[in-house]
Design a protein around this nucleic acid. Structure first.
Lengths: 336, 336
DNA sequence: AGAATTTACTGAACCGGGTAAGTTGTGGTG
DNA sequence: CACCACAACTTACCCGGTTCAGTAAATTCT
């Protein structure tokens, strides 16, 4: 089936292509009567402007890109990413921007994808997640002058805007809460050590523990359930085992809960558990997990809004998008 | 920064635009020496063909579309979709096709998005999930002659290929297994009743129960943890409460497990639980859940392959992509 | 009434690739 | 040597919108 073009509309309306273009885009240059006639014809024959032709004439691609550089199997279980994506979608679809997604294996490939997408004019901007120390993507984005927003930070991103939340404040709150309950041996199972926000959290965790005179034990992990289980086992077989563990994501926290129960420890009696980033998963398990809650979808929506503003040429500055707050549930209690 | 075009390459190589186009696309019409010179220049200045211009000249958009018509909050926790998406990506990125994603609220909007994407020549084909009875998307796809592959079925899709797995066989296996363990009162918490595969499963569940002389109780739900909990509670307060429950997804199964434990029932002693679609979630909880396992990512990859074949103009037929098989874990045992 | 301005258009160039058709230059053949 | 075949290009137009310069008619101003 041949897809109709503005030339078809022009022929049927007895006007020129240019007039049709003006009419359909709400530009001045056509009378109201003609505009309505043209719009009616467009409706009738089911016209949709060819985005390729439009993009070719200098207009935008009306799409933003997102690359994810994590093993696919993590994506399947990490509520974080789908939460973010939902948030992006909410904002993007409202302005009929599409989200173009690509899972890649390494940061180098990520850079490749950025270059290609931008060169091909497939996207108008990108959302960058999982900021690393000396992230190789930042200089490339600056060189390409590709509109971008970084989720996470604060870090070195030059003039690229960042959306971040106060991770240091959140973890401090969690530690204070556990200490108030009477815990003295608090451990932490962290996410990928290469990521900047992991480092921020680790630093803040060390700081608060130091200032309270506690020993700060952090076992680095990778957000997977398997690694979360392993780290938990390592912590719990220790003679001086912790009475509370803070996990950097919900998946590891749930895995840790299972390990504790397997080993015959009562949660929260023998071990308290705090998960970073709340998700339905945390309230589904038994006991439900105390978590550091933030509105991930809103976080994503915020990032999308900033990116769209940046694409529109507005100057965008770093924004803090709400601190995570503690949601106490059944997995935390004073130690026995 | 100005992005380079073939005209820039042509100027630097001292040839015409046409020659550059032939050279870069491996077409005959240029000498090997010239071709290499042109390719070298393209490399050097970081040339990427503008996808819009390419698409305008009749080439493909090198992108496929996926719309998801489910509440955003479900996407966040359903491992199924991210598993599928990982599978798509694996196949698509290998052929440098992009995946364009849009979350929509209703099937009507979904149809709108198909029309728009296809009209705008933004995509070359779509992957359709969550097939319904008399699905309104099917006639539209046929009318538009938009290449498509349906995940799920078998159902009425005319000449649009389907990728499906033998749900009836899988649920029969699960029921047989539970009966072999000694269960006589087996209930089921299903997914959205409007979806075709829910109906297939319900029919098969009724059939096998009938043939074994068991009463078939199915409570319809919507894949969310909340509804899963509610359905489980309804089943467990019954005087003739079931000794085993089969859930249509992992999220509801985990929620059900939590409800049982809350009510003081031992799993698997007082209640056995089977989840449909395995995921790391199932092995994370305690006890780990017996599940109907299938390789979701491979399922998605399969669908992507078929769609790409269909875009290439090949005739694609319905394919069965492996039956789910039972993975017994700690949540099933003979009833006490 | 005549000049100046505004309105409502038309026509053509343009975006950046793809490609059919035409133009060279070279070598081989009868 | 004339003729042909073929490689190696160039030229020119296409795709489907956007946009700018131009133009004729209608309206406003003086």
């Amino acid at each position: 089936m041949k897809r109709p073009t503005i030339a078809d509309i022009a022929r049927r309306a007895g006007v020129s292509k240019g007039a049709v273009s003006y009419a359909l885009n709400g530009q001045p240059g056509v009378s109201e009567a003609t505009r309505q006639r043209i719009v009616a014809i467009a409706q009738e024959i089911g016209f949709n402007p060819n985005s390729a032709a439009r993009a070719l004439s200098g207009a935008s691609a009306r799409a933003v890109g997102l690359t994810l550089c994590r093993p696919a199997r993590i994506l399947g279980i990490e509520p974080w990413f789908m939460g973010l994506i939902s948030g992006f979608e909410a904002e993007l679809s409202a302005r009929s921007y599409a989200l173009t997604l690509q899972v890649v294996a390494t940061p180098e490939l990520e850079v490749e994808v950025y270059r290609r997408w931008w060169g091909e004019r497939r996207i108008d901007g990108v959302i960058v997640t999982d900021l690393r120390e000396n992230d190789i993507r930042i200089p490339v984005l600056q060189q390409l002058q590709l509109p971008a927003v970084v989720i996470g930070g604060p870090g070195e991103t030059g003039d690229i805007a960042q959306i971040w939340s106060d991770d240091a404040g959140a973890i401090t709150e969690a530690v204070r809460y556990l200490v108030a309950l009477g815990h003295r041996r608090i451990a932490r199972v962290s996410g990928l050590p290469g990521l900047l926000h992991t480092q921020t959290r680790t630093r803040a965790f060390n700081d608060i523990c130091d200032s309270l005179g506690l020993e700060a034990v952090t076992i680095p992990s990778d957000y997977t359930g398997e690694e979360g289980s392993r780290a938990t086992r390592r912590l719990l077989i220790d003679t001086a085992r912790p009475t509370a563990i803070i996990y950097d994501n919900d998946v590891m926290a749930v895995a840790g809960l299972a390990v504790a129960q397997e080993m015959g420890l009562a949660v929260p009696g023998d071990l308290s558990i705090v998960a970073w980033d709340d998700s339905p998963l945390c309230s589904l398990v038994h006991p439900p997990l105390t978590a550091l809650t933030r509105d991930i979808a809103e976080y994503g929506a915020h990032a999308a809004r900033e990116l769209l503003a940046s694409i529109d040429g507005k100057q965008v500055t770093n924004v803090e998008a709400g601190t995570a707050h503690l949601t106490p549930r059944g997995s935390t209690a004073p130690p026995r």
